[in-house]
Design a binder for these strands. Structure first.
Lengths: 296, 296
DNA sequence: AAATTGTTTTTTATCGATAAGCGAAAACAG
DNA sequence: CTGTTTTCGCTTATCGATAAAAAACAATTT
């Protein structure tokens, strides 16, 4: 049976909308809600029905109004709103990157399914999708093997990353003045400066900014295989640095400065300078990640 | 339930072994057969049991001998020996590349399952694995969309291919004299000359040789992401040219000459010459594929 | 007529069950 | 004791069933 995480998440989001609007206000149309929440109207109607049942909303059809304030505890608990596939991902990344798993470890579908509280199908699907990340290998009819999040893996990952990013940075620098990318680059430059100003409080926001910055560069000359590869980078970085907080503030501050130099270079469109700034930053990112292997 | 294609294929292969050995000869040990056929001993035993039952093999345990010649028609029909996953692949590639499918077409899991004669799980798994080929996209909870085997797809594919191969060719040219790759390169050069000699009869063998040649170049400096990408190339080329036989002989002959020039360049280790030969060949391969879009 | 709601049909996500296939341990032969 | 076969438990591949979610269609209101 399908899980109803979509419904529960939509329900919680709608509760927040109700709170924001206040008692007595009329509700938006079903179509509007559907667009807002990013779910089908079928789900919206299910949410509305539940809200009426609970008494938070009164009236029928197009005469619905907010009937009462939403009490604390009306939301579905967070874990119930996370899609099964996402849960598997989080569990599996933790299992892999936090060291319980040695290179060469056999992966047992049924065992993982039990441990993560999902059916074997979910595990299977995840493993199949995750295969392209290069961290697991399949032996037909005989299961999966974890290959290890090793120094070697990181080296290979960065080799490709540098190749791709250099290519995209070059392409970006050669775009005409009229290209839509330049204002976007300036906008992200501003966000870097803002973050740098509040670095002491907000240094954790860098991870997201970093991701957006590199994706913007790749967007200069779109290529689906490069985009795909960036999914791998994003996932690995996301989980790796989430559990590896050593020197995070200092690391991020340095990276912001590198980004700013890189952006300056791009804005001048001086190709050698772009390449230098790009190479410098990526080498630094690589050194940071490789350093985590030395420590261990 | 799991299909028994592994058993059936092993059975057929064993029949061929029996025919080759002739009546009266003793059978190899179960372990030897297992290694030979590339299946587990469990499956070997199942095959042996069936052979005894049919009377082709007499004796028990280590005293098994071939009892009689194998009649025609003893083999399982070929389709029964193809794993479900492979069947799905073949069907799907045909559906996709032979034009019944327009870009933007919705992919219906159940419908495909019916059409291909497999369960929905098989389709789902295939689609998930196939996603990385960049030809289909997923909209969560709402199915898959076929994006089209378009000129644009081919351009993006070749951009990456050229980037990767140039990198590998450079790495190869810089390996020391003692590297194990040089004799292998000479061996594959010989195979090219052999094929060229019999080009009229054997031009169809080029596809396999081409694949092995490019993989050898990538093996100079292994990187799992490049290997992975080469899987995409291999699959696309395999099916595309299987159904696109226009000028095949001439095409292949030209490509062999390009390969030979490329190999010569590699053997001299003259970097500019290597790059020139590599670029030339890849540009030619790209032009060949792009030409198929003009025709349509 | 356009937008909205009500209803029905279609399609996906997810589970559990089961035979095929793998691999290790036990038993056996020389 | 070495290589082989026998036996057995464990794991994967594959199916069909079912509720959730989306999408298409019909009816209604403004």
């Amino acid at each position: 049976m399908k899980s109803d995480t979509v419904f529960k998440q939509a329900f919680n989001q709608t509760l927040d909308l109700l709170s924001a609007a206040g008692t007595g206000a009329p509700l938006p149309s079903e179509n509007a809600l559907s667009a807002d929440l990013g779910v089908s109207r079928t789900t919206v109607r299910k949410v509305l029905a539940r809200l009426s049942e609970r008494g938070y909303v009164a009236g029928q059809g197009r005469n619905r109004v907010i009937a009462s304030a939403v009490p604390d505890g009306a939301h579905f608990p967070h874990p119930e709103t996370v899609a099964t596939a996402k849960q598997v991902e989080v569990h599996f990344m933790e299992w892999m990157l936090r060291g319980q798993a040695q290179p060469g470890t056999q992966i047992n579908e049924l065992e993982l399914a039990r441990a993560f509280g999902v059916g074997t199908t979910g595990i299977r699907e995840f493993l199949n999708r995750f295969r392209r990340f290069g961290l697991i290998a399949k032996r037909p009819n005989a299961g999966w093997v974890f290959m290890g999040f090793t120094r070697e893996f990181a080296m290979e990952l960065f080799e490709i990353r540098e190749m791709f990013e250099l290519r995209s940075a070059r392409a970006l620098a050669q775009l005409p003045d009229s290209a839509a990318i330049w204002p976007r680059l300036r906008a992200i430059e501003r966000q870097h400066r803002d973050l740098l100003r509040d670095i002491d409080e907000r240094y954790q926001d860098f991870s997201d900014l970093d991701n957006r910055f590199h994706r913007l560069i790749n967007a200069a000359a779109p290529n689906r295989f490069i985009d795909d590869f960036y999914d791998i980078i994003t996932l690995i970085f996301h989980y790796h640095y989430q559990w590896n907080k050593h020197d995070e503030r200092a690391r991020n501050e340095i990276a912001i400065h590198e980004h700013l130099a890189y952006i300056q270079a791009l804005l001048t469109r001086d190709l050698p300078r772009v390449q230098a700034a790009c190479t410098l930053h990526l080498a630094s990112a690589r050194a940071t990640m490789l350093a985590t292997f030395e420590a261990a």
